[in-house]
Structure formats: structure tokens, C-alpha cells
């Protein structure tokens, strides 16, 4: 292995849709599996992935998502997003990709750190108790950079 091997990563997850959250989780988990230190920093709507009331209800965006291949007006029909989410979740389960709450637990058990962004927490008027148990801390941007010293930072 070369000396340039990645040793540490920090991933910022800023989106609250299913397709916005999974890449961050897969990359964090994949890093841990390779022995890379990993931290996840959830900000803005990305915090839905670690908020107790919302983490079980994450949906695929069927509107404003041209890659879905369905017209926006169809995507806007009630139930479309739920249906697309159900289909996608089934496919992911077949590949052994866990649902979001289980995935967060898995990453945490793997030694990955989970953080919420202080500015977003204040803005959405949330408290530490609103988050799942895996959340290690609520951090300011400054603290996030501090703990990311020597890491590659990935924004999703």
C-alpha cells in the first residue's frame, strides 16, 4: 500500500432525502470496513437521518429529481414518494443495505462517530434528546474542523 493511503475522513450529510442520506452512510461504513477513521456530521435536513421522530420516515424525492424518469407532476401525486421509497428499500434490503436507523447503529458500532451541527440544531430548535442514542455530540463548525484535522472532508 502506498503512503498516501487515506487514514481519516469526515463526511458532511446535508440532505434529508433517502438518496441524499445513503451515500454518506455507505461511504462512512465503507471507510470503517477499510480501517479508516470516520466521522459523520449531519447538518440542515441531513439531521433527519439521526432525529428519532424522522429517521424511520426518510423518503425518496420524486419531485425535482429528473433522474427518477417520471414527470414532476406524476411525482407530486400523493403516495408516489412513499411507493418509490418502498421499492427502493426493498431493493436495498436484497443487497443487505440496512434501513437508515440500523445503518447508523452499525456505523456507530463500527467505531464511526456521529455528530449534529449546532447551527442547524439551534435553527430547528432541537435538543440532544431529540436525536438517536448514537449521536455522540452536537458540534459547532469550528469543532468539526478541529476534529477533522488530518482528514479528508466529503460533502454530500
Amino acid at each position: 500500500m502506498s503512503e498516501d493511503k487515506i487514514k481519516k475522513i469526515s463526511i458532511v450529510c446535508s440532505k434529508g432525502s433517502l438518496e441524499g442520506i445513503y451515500p454518506a452512510l455507505i461511504m462512512a461504513n465503507g471507510a470503517r470496513m477499510e480501517g479508516i477513521e470516520a466521522s459523520l456530521f449531519f447538518t440542515f435536513f441531513g439531521m433527519d437521518a439521526i432525529t428519532k421522530k424522522k429517521m424511520h420516515k426518510i423518503k425518496v424525492a420524486t419531485v425535482g429529481n429528473p433522474a427518477m424518469g417520471i414527470p414532476t407532476i406524476i411525482g407530486a401525486i400523493p403516495g408516489m414518494s412513499a411507493m418509490a421509497t418502498k421499492m427502493m428499500s426493498k431493493q436495498m434490503d436484497e443487497l443487505d443495505i440496512p434501513p437508515i436507523p440500523e445503518f447508523i447503529e452499525m456505523i456507530h458500532d463500527a467505531g464511526g462517530k456521529v455528530f449534529a451541527c449546532k447551527a442547524s440544531v439551534d435553527m430547528f430548535k432541537l435538543k440532544k434528546e431529540d436525536f438517536c442514542d448514537e449521536v455522540d455530540d452536537i458540534l459547532t463548525v469550528g469543532q468539526f474542523y478541529e476534529l477533522s484535522a488530518g482528514a479528508q472532508i466529503i460533502f454530500t
Binding site: G35, M106, D109, A110
Partner: peptide
């Protein structure tokens, strides 16, 4: 348990 896997085979359990 995942925690045990990482404890037993640190830095790349599955591999």
C-alpha cells in the same frame, strides 16, 4: 455483533 467483529479483527474486520 458488529462491535465484536471490529474488536476481534481491528482495521478491516471483513477483509
Amino acid at each position: 455483533q458488529t462491535k465484536d467483529l471490529y474488536r476481534l479483527f481491528p482495521e478491516g474486520p471483513l477483509k
